[in-house]
Design a protein around this nucleic acid. Structure first.
Lengths: 330, 330
DNA sequence: ATGAAAGCGCTAACAT
DNA sequence: ATGTTAGCGCTTTCAT
């Protein structure tokens, strides 16, 4: 490995002069600089970032904690984070936790040892003491897609509004019997979507019918069997609000299997606007989360936080969802 | 930050003893070890991995170079790599190149400065001198989903066989007029798929009809317009072999728009077996790439290579594709 | 078994 | 403007 010493020797100067010549911000005689640069070229010298990091306690590295890159939500998020990071001179370590709190904690510990400069955390577990601890240790953290009250900076979606708008749209289009397929209500985002659903019905003086509240929080059925059960009961809704696109697809499959048509008999609306939702037949009406922008914003926030060491005011950025009207609603 | 000195002071021993006590492989008096461990606990000491890396020239970090995490092929690959890496004590730096050779090179340089221990490269550009250079510098590299002759270790799919099997299946099911929607033939994988297509036709004594060779290498249409053009020409095929699932979906959309049915009028077969391809209506018949396993294998290979410093024999692992028969073929 | 000292490659304070 | 020195936190000879 070529070190700064080798360059110094070849250029006939001291290592510090080489360091200064390379960094640029410290005045160096033009001639010596030329000599140094030539030596750098000849030797193909690459400064050792590790040594620099050790010296100045900054690694220009961030840890990105996500539950599962296989879940289609996350690639867009990751892409946004990576792009801003790269353009700002940071690199990102990808930490996939498999939705396992233990793995998450281990990753966090490991990353701290490596002096990662900050974290973006996009996992949604109930137990969050370890996140709060990081706050106390003054390690820069930005939450993404989740938040912890107003204690940690975060970039989230206005899930309530997304659900409210979706259901209100259905109501405007004269649907009256609107079912919801929901996920684990312990997770804030599903609770918020549920609240939005209820509020929209209430504001339209429609009653909330418990038989239309479908719990899809367990298993990997993605809305299929709960929809089947509902249809079997004979209590046919005229619309279904699914809290994810995947659930919407499951619902549509169930509806088709029962010989009903989407949207003619039953409208279906999804949530997330995943890439494939526009490729589906019928193209899915859905609530769009600006995932890519959210990833970018999270990284921008993190950079700001990392750059100021003193404490700052916590800001929660709540992004606007957008209703994308396609062909699965009439 | 708590350092090894702080621990040493509290335990009343020297830093070297602390180091030995922690590492474990060097004999330390049981009593002193206990004292040290207690101090470690009390102070919540975390060894600085950076310092260790600087010392022993190993970072336990690998760089994973991919063209675009937004492309559905890559999350599975990444997942496999990450899982094996994590379980073997490595962390992975995610480098998204946006299909830009310049960004790729910059990332590679940057990673080298950080003394990344090795690379997995899953980008498919024609210009590969920089990859070959790494080989010369004896930097461990494994290519994934692409390869460079037999010069660099790689994990790839048997694209020829995948295409051959798919087209042969169509022939067995009595299709005679089989079109192909292909990508950039400069990329080995598309060339191989094309060769598989041709060979299957030849082996069945079917002629290769140029009007059935659809070039979908430019734009973002994903098979839609080339299919439209073909159908417009009146030269209706009875099957279409699309070289990606996305292109298959585009083809199906075009076919439906023309009032034909899939698979009754025209069978369509895809390639990749992306997550959503089974959710589509009709569920897509396609050639499956074991992406997750390929990611895992690539990381396993890389670990082996990193562990032996002397040169080794280059091995190309060619994975078996699997034909997944669903409902888009009759 | 343990401590002292040197050094990984770099930069910055200090000296000239 | 440039060289000398010290030190980031760790491990590893070399002594004892």
């Amino acid at each position: 490995m070529v070190t700064i010493k080798d360059v110094a020797k070849m250029a006939g100067v001291s290592p510090s002069t080489v360091s200064r010549a390379i960094s640029g911000n410290i005045p160096v005689d033009k001639q010596t600089k030329d000599k140094v640069m030539k030596a750098v070229k000849v030797l193909d010298y690459e400064p050792n970032a590790l040594a620099k990091s050790l010296k100045d306690g900054k690694t220009n590295t961030i840890g990105l904690i996500i539950p599962n890159i296989g879940n289609q939500l996350f690639p867009s998020l990751v892409k946004g984070v990576e792009e801003v990071a790269r353009k700002s001179g940071y690199i990102v370590i990808l930490c996939n936790t498999e939705n396992n709190l233990d793995i998450e904690k281990k990753y966090l510990d490991k990353m701290k040892k490596r002096l990662v400069d900050g974290f973006i955390v996009a996992t949604a577990e109930a137990d969050s003491r370890h996140i709060l601890n990081m706050k106390d240790e003054e390690i820069p953290v930005v939450l993404l897609v989740r938040h912890l009250e107003d204690k940690v900076d975060a970039v989230i979606l206005d899930n309530f509004k997304g659900a409210y708008d979706a259901v209100t749209y259905l109501i405007i289009r004269e649907h009256k019997k609107i079912a919801i397929i929901n996920g684990r209500v312990e997770l804030t985002l599903y609770n918020e979507r549920f609240q939005g659903y209820k509020k929209a019905l209430e504001d339209a003086n429609l009653s909330v019918d418990n038989t239309y509240i479908l719990d899809d929080s367990v298993g990997e059925e993605n809305g299929y069997s709960v929809t089947v059960n509902l249809l079997k009961s004979g209590n046919i809704p005229d619309a279904i609000f699914a809290t994810t696109d995947l659930r919407a697809l499951g619902a549509i499959r169930a509806i088709k299997d029962f010989g009903y048509k989407v949207p003619e008999d039953i409208s279906v609306i999804g949530f997330d606007n995943l890439e494939f939702s526009k490729l589906f037949d019928p193209q899915l009406t859905t609530v769009s989360q600006p995932l890519y922008s959210m990833g970018k914003l999270a990284m921008q926030k993190l950079i700001k936080i990392m750059n100021k060491k003193n404490k700052h005011k916590v800001i929660i950025d709540k992004m606007e969802p957008e209703l994308i009207i396609r062909n699965s609603t009439r």
